[in-house]
Design a protein around this nucleic acid. Sequence first.
DNA 1: CAGTGAGCGAGCTTCCGCTTGACTT
Length: 785
Amino acid sequence: MAKNLVIVESPAKAKTIEKILGSDYDVRSCFGHIRDLEKDAMGIDINNNFKPKYIVPEDKEKVVKELKKLAKDTQEVWLATDEDREGEAISWHLCEVLGLDPYSTKRIVFHEITKPAIERAVLKPRLVNMDLVHAQQARRILDRIVGFELSPVLWRKMSMRNSLSAGRVQSVAVRLIVEREREINHFKSVSTFKVEAYFTAKDINGKSVTFKAEGPSRFKSVEDAEKFLQQCVGASYSVRDIQVKPARKTPAAPFTTSTLQQEASRKLGYSVSKTMLLAQKLYESGQITYMRTDSVNLSETAMTDLKAAIVNNYGDKYYQERKFKNKNESAQEAHEAIRPTYATNQSVDDADTRKLYELIWKRTLASQMSDAELEKTTAKIAISTSPEELTANGEVMKFDGFLKLYLEGRDEEDVADEDDEQEGSLPLLAIKQQLDLREMRATERFSRPAPRYTEASLVKKLEELGIGRPSTYAPTITTVQKRGYVEKRDKEGIKRTFRILTLKNDQIKQVEDQENTGAEKSKLFPTDLGMIVTDFLNQYFNSVMDYNFTARIEGEFDEIANGKKVWNNMLQDFYSPFHKDVENTLENAERVKGERQLGVDEATGKPIVARMGRYGPMIQIGKVEDEEKPRFAKLKQTQSIETITLDEAMELFRLPRNLGQFEDQDVTVNIGRFGPYAQHDKQFYSLKKEMDPYTVELDEIAPLIAEKRTAKNERTIKVFEKEKIQVLKGPYGPYLKVGLKNYKLPKEKLEHPEALTVEECKAIIEEAKANPPKKKAPPRKKKAE
DNA sequence: CAGTGAGCGAGCTTCCGCTTGACTT
């Protein structure tokens, strides 16, 4: 039995630290929080100064039991949880549960897992900081109150569905997405004309080179653009001025959780949860430091190693020591930045994991490398027939520096223009040099709304607002999707024509071209439910929904942590007005139906409404109390109650069509995921190409049914258990079909499949399950671009 | 590859933040 028990949060950390501290220390992990508020009720005695009722959750009982035993048999317990609010609270909970005195038990902290840092920490133990613990407790209780008082309000006031939820973080995340969607829906695109001129000039070697210059301001109308081109007819062009300026680029800071998620999304297309899963693997296998962090700091030893690696591989010129500071005030910096454990590039087996590792490795090294040095050239080109002038920009890299390894990706919203290409180099030009115009073009461009959020850009926004923590970004995004407030999907673009005016050989021509616009991939869209719930919460609980709410209360938690505020008082100040809002809403708010009147059906005069049904957004024509029953239709995924038009709604009523009965069963026609189909007696029938689902008639469907039946009869050898198990004849021989799964018959049964018994079939299925088939076929090759 | 859809009421749901496996396919 070791003399000392050290408790940390993460088991991977425990292993490393145990190696460093040696055999006198038994280093164990508590796996994060070991107690939480009681789950079945509020878990807070609000009238008794917000006294919390903590319990050990079931899945933590085992860990707690083991730690209790170890703590009893050891001389000294060291609490080495993370140095942040949550870590401090975990230490206090450990005291409570393990029967340790928080006023004498040793509390140690370190920000990096290196021998000197840990040895230093052991020499300087302190006590649990109760102010910090109280700040955490206030945070926890406030979140519970908000979540467990708001959610039931939704259950009462929303007429649609169960298991709705609201919370300080998730509801604001949904609000961001809802507001962005409406911004996009209300966006009015305006077009401008951008002028580009292509010149040829002789460079130093007498070689003819083409380069591009941009026009003066953008023109607001096609007439203005044409006027300008007209002016240029017969003009000559000469270089008026050349400016050469040095420029520098600086590397980005090492990764935090949020920047890693953003960059892996931009460069590798990973979802935030995929990034975290792979990072966890790298952390557990000792390849990277802890992956849930908000710090951009690198440890001293890491800095030394990075320097050596950069100097060895690229030379002195490429090294530049840098210390980054966190821009984010809400950062708690209990860990280092995410960096590779070893400065030399390690090999990682799995391809996806390796890509993430390389990203981390490159970003970390680049952060300690020199600036890239550029030379930017701007040439002004005069037009003999106009006071306007054209500008040509060129960029030449003089020294690559950190760009040798890494360049940070850019978000869509930061890219101002869609045709923002890399600037090339310009030929060496002389002032007054005459230039030959090959072609001048004025192209119509349209302004674009802000793009919809991706998972990663939402994380970025939440972090900027100080909402959520590194450990919760990925789960929050999962939650809002699971609750049905938000959907991740692609959007097809629409074709748009744009005009191009060209001036060539002193002739002006206008042509039209087409572009695909508005296509988006893996973006977050609010659902109707998300919009309705957000509107409701905004109306009745605007203080909690305020984007600055978290930042404000974080300030108060800081005051509690500094001993300037008492936690119960802070909670009381929050609770009184909040609870009043809850009561007021329960009493006065109407049940929300999420209904929108679309108009009336011209043919029948019946009203048409779009609303939330029990199964999601729908449209309804006619009323329940009408003599003729109302008809209903489900909205398509891409439609929403807020934006659907009357015409679109009427279109939805055209299908499904009921064609009448065939053999006492209805025949209906609809369009499904795989195209138009008919349905009869629980069977589906694909329509033939020449059949139109809107006009096809019953007699045309009947042959399909007959055809399928004979095909089935011909193929069926034997059937067991009400068609659950079928023996069928396939093109490669007889096989067994159970539900959607097919099973091969063993060789000795192939000759007489009709002799199979139920028992034999079941044995074949069991056998197949016990010995799963060999690996799946290799993944399909990506389509060539 | 579906359609379902009243209103009532019983009985249910829910938060954020800290950590990983134990599950099944």
